Amino acid sequence: MRIAVLIPCYNEELTIGKVIADFRRELPDADIYVYDNNSRDRTADIARAAGAIVRREFRQGKGNVVRSMFRDIDADIYVMIDGDDTYPAEFVHDLIQPVAAGEADMSIGDRHSDGSYSSENKRPFHNFGNQFVKALINRLFRSQLRDIMTGYRVFNRRFAKTMPIQSEGFEIETEMTLHALDKRFRIIEIPIRYRDRPPGSESKLNTVSDGIRVLKTVFWIFKDYKPLAFFGTVALLFFIAGLAVGIPVITEFFASGRIAKMPSAILAVGLMVLATNSLTCGFILDTIVRNHRDNYELLQNEFKD
């Protein structure tokens, strides 16, 4: 099998050499690709000297890098890993095994099962954000995943070549997980150890801005993938608001035979119309999404590994 190790990088000169050496030791026959995303340090030079295939991605953002990787690189197995040396290379065999055996389309390096992420990661809001997004996605998609946002993943060719990537930044991991859940790809989680960045290596993540981007991604994908549930919820909110405004008007009408609160009556009717329109949009878009899923399944049937 052709194995490609994909390493998106931005200013990782302190760690990229070790990451490449570790994966070269574990996977001596694999092709190791480093996509430099406009680094201002010696990341590209060090990666090239370590024997990696170095390419440039000028559009800033991890999502843009992964999109180019999936388009440009042909392999049977894709290993995606960060260049910050937070994921031990020795676990790569455990992640590759179920994908290579045809038991999974994507395997995920689960950082949470052994507690290493909570103990090693020194950013408490990141831990909270991970848990919140995980609970939200598991609720929306009725799944039981333990690590939604890990950067240590292995894919087969089918997944890599048929996934439409919309994200530009660090929300790409969330998008991958949501896409796999919605399209019923087989996912297996493999417990791994996580270690924090070595001294001198700085994270590019921003808890607030990246957290907002991830939540926006979950919101839009929920709307696009489950429109009936989304617009049904919106319709329910409008319906409740319409009842709250309209019940006093109806009560007054039955008591006196006339309507004195005309503005409230107009508002209540407007809210009920919005509720009806939202529910109608939900049914129409749900039919479109179902047709899209059918077409995607047909595409999968025609895909040649």
Rank of each mutant, 00 (worst) to 15 (best):
R2F: 10
I7S: 01
Y10Q: 13
Y10S: 14
F23T: 05
L27K: 08
D29P: 01
D29R: 15
Y33G: 00
V34H: 07
S39N: 02
R40N: 14
T43F: 01
A47R: 11
A52T: 13
V54W: 07
F58S: 15
G61N: 01
G61C: 02
K62W: 11
G63P: 11
N64I: 09
V66C: 07
S68Q: 15
I77L: 14
M80T: 12
I81A: 12
G83I: 06
E90W: 09
I96V: 10
A100Q: 14
G102S: 02
E103N: 13
A104K: 03
H112D: 08
F125C: 06
H126G: 04
K134E: 12
I137G: 02
R142S: 14
G151Y: 04
Y152A: 05
R157W: 04
R158N: 01
K161R: 15
M163I: 13
P164Q: 02
E175K: 05
T177K: 06
K183Y: 05
R184I: 01
F185H: 06
I187G: 01
E189W: 11
D196R: 04
R197N: 13
E202I: 12
N206P: 00
T207R: 10
V208N: 06
G211Q: 01
G211W: 03
I212S: 07
W220F: 13
F222N: 04
K226M: 10
K226P: 00
A229T: 10
F230H: 10
G232C: 07
V234R: 12
V234H: 00
A235M: 03
L236F: 12
I240K: 10
L243Q: 05
A244E: 04
I247H: 05
P248M: 02
E252S: 14
I259Y: 00
A260E: 14
L267T: 15
M272K: 06
V273Q: 10
L274K: 06
A275W: 00
A275L: 08
S278Q: 04
F283V: 00
N291M: 02
H292Y: 05
